[in-house]
């Protein structure tokens, strides 16, 4: 168990799940598009539209994958997404000259939140669910209380991220692709990645092997917060201005955990990878798109979503021999 988990997993265990999930998602999307006669959804533009649904959840989920791999979890991402979206629009006030400062300040906030989360979990020994639930609540409360003075809108030029593109491919999609590849590279090919798998798979073993496990956990939390920040910036660009509830309304905290686990990363850590997570995000995106084509009622959509989350995780969890809680 633990010895297995300590080996870098994605190439061996993540890939089949990710390909299977991606295949299923695309199959579902194509079948629904054909069945409902919405063939235009299968054009280049339709596919781009489908993939663009992945961006916001995809970015958070990549970060979430890092923390879950290291055996932690981050429930504060939803509040952080809202905070970044609100802060970015407040700092910019529609002024293109403020784009860069706004991005830097937002990422600075994310860095700070990530450091606090990581310090509470790694050095304070506080259960990550409680620690990040706590920081999330703190951010959410401060944000909601001060929203009155934090009004604003992002610069038009900044919205290019959400609406502009290169050769028909939206910049946001390129951003997701680049960051996914970078995250995959870090996890598979660098020392930091190997340490993440080691710490998540067997923390005591990793410590005995001379890894400063606390630092690795701390860094993973910083990565998660920065990715949440990227997602918040994208949402601000898409919506023109942030509100204190966009993260919570999107249930980005729980959904990012769900897609990560659906993608084959185990909650105990040490096993999984970015490819599976992205496949999980693609599943959610094609379900959403498919349900829209079918005209499924919004509430029924939620019911199906809930059932699919359980079923998708059950498919590979059922083989687990040990007990899970």
């Amino acid at each position: 168990m633990t010895t297995d988990a300590a080996k870098p997993g994605p190439a061996r265990s993540g890939l089949p799940i990710s390909i299977l999930l991606a295949g299923l998602s695309i199959g579902f999307f194509v079948v629904v598009a054909l069945a409902t006669g919405e063939v235009s959804q299968l054009s280049g533009q339709g596919i781009v539209g489908l993939l663009q649904r992945m961006v916001a959840l995809g970015l958070v989920s990549i970060g979430q994958t890092f923390v879950i791999l290291v055996g932690s979890i981050d429930l504060s991402v939803a509040a952080l997404i809202s905070a970044v979206a609100v802060l970015a629009s407040h700092i910019m006030q529609g002024d293109p000259a403020m784009i860069l400062p706004a991005i830097l300040i937002c990422l600075g906030l994310c860095l700070a939140v990530g450091l606090v989360n990581g310090a509470l979990v790694a050095y304070g020994g506080i259960n990550p669910l409680i620690a990040t639930l706590g920081t999330g609540l703190i951010i959410q409360g401060v944000l909601a209380a001060s929203f009155g003075v934090l009004q604003g809108a992002v610069a038009r030029e900044f919205q290019v991220i959400a609406y502009g593109g290169l050769l028909g491919v939206p910049y946001s999609l390129l951003l997701l692709a680049v960051l996914s590849l970078a995250a995959g590279f870090v996890l598979d090919r660098t020392l930091f990645g190997a340490r993440i798998y080691a710490v998540g798979g067997n923390p005591d073993g990793a410590r005995l092997a001379g890894i400063r496990t606390e630092r690795v956990t701390l860094s993973a939390h910083v990565v998660a917060s920065l990715f949440a920040g990227a997602s918040g910036l994208y949402l601000a660009a898409r919506l023109q201005s942030g509100t204190p509830w966009i993260g919570r309304d999107g249930i980005y905290d729980l959904e990012s955990i769900a897609v990560t686990v659906i993608g084959g990363t185990i909650l105990a850590g040490g096993k999984g990878g970015v490819a599976g997570t992205l496949a999980g995000v693609l599943l959610f995106a094609s379900l959403d798109a498919g349900f829209n084509m079918l005209g499924v009622d919004a509430f029924l959509k939620q019911v199906l979503r809930g059932a699919i989350v359980i079923a998708a995780v059950a498919v590979h969890a059922i083989r687990t021999k040990e007990h899970v809680a």
Binding site: L129, L254, I257, A258, V261, L267, Q302, V303, R305, G306, A307, V309, I310, V313, A314, A317, I318, R319, T320, H323, V324, A325
Partner: peptide, 16 residues
Amino acid sequence: FLKVPSIITTLGTMLL
């Protein structure tokens, strides 16, 4: 029996 971690299971039933 399906061995789905409770945080995911009950998130699913919460949505459902």
